[in-house]
């Protein structure tokens, strides 16, 4: 294991639960690994699998999707959709040579600052153990608009 490896992780956090949990961890001054960079979406149901692949393609070593607990979604059921998509995507990832463990979906509610901290720390360690992804990145093509 390369202990010097500092993984880069993209976090897709929903606006109502996990993003607020990260805010709460902040206001509670909890310290945690600085490896997760958060992209806010209104709902975990907005996280397009292509966005996850785009993150891996651009150098992410791991992707963490954070949504509300089952039954708590601000939009009724977006988190269930995120769950289904994540399950399918994790089955697909090995075809790209990506370990499915590099993608994780977690339910973290707005009041769970501690859980946010623990999940980030634990996931960072997990990715550290897996090592860098080292995707063979093809020359960049302009994204279709």
């Amino acid at each position: 294991m390369n202990t010097n490896f500092n993984p880069t992780i993209v976090g897709f956090f929903c606006n109502w639960c996990t993003y607020l949990a990260a805010d709460l961890a902040g206001t509670s001054r909890m310290k945690y690994a600085p490896n997760v960079r958060v992209v806010r979406t209104m709902c975990s149901g907005r996280v397009d699998p292509q966005m996850v692949l785009w993150a891996f393609r651009n150098g992410a070593d791991g992707v963490l999707i954070g949504g509300c607990h089952p039954g708590d979604c601000h939009y009724q059921e977006g988190n269930y959709k995120a769950l289904r998509r994540t399950r399918l995507l994790r089955k697909m990832l090995p075809q790209f040579g990506i370990e499915p463990e590099r993608l994780r979906l977690e339910w973290i509610s707005a009041s769970e600052g501690e859980r946010l901290r623990d999940v980030v720390n634990e996931f960072t360690e997990q990715i550290r153990r897996l090592g860098p992804l080292r995707m063979e990145v093809a020359p960049k093509v302009a994204m279709a608009a």
């Binding site: 979406t41 149901g45 397009d48 785009w54 601000h74 939009y75 959709k81 994204m143 608009a145």
Partner: peptide, 25 residues
């Protein structure tokens, strides 16, 4: 404005203001 239709659309026809594909990518 949850955007779940946008994530599901296979043609990129569905978009969400403030959270367009281009913006998030």
């Amino acid at each position: 404005g949850c955007g779940t239709c946008v994530a599901a659309c296979p043609s990129g026809a569905a978009q969400q203001n403030l959270f367009r594909d281009e913006q998030l990518f």
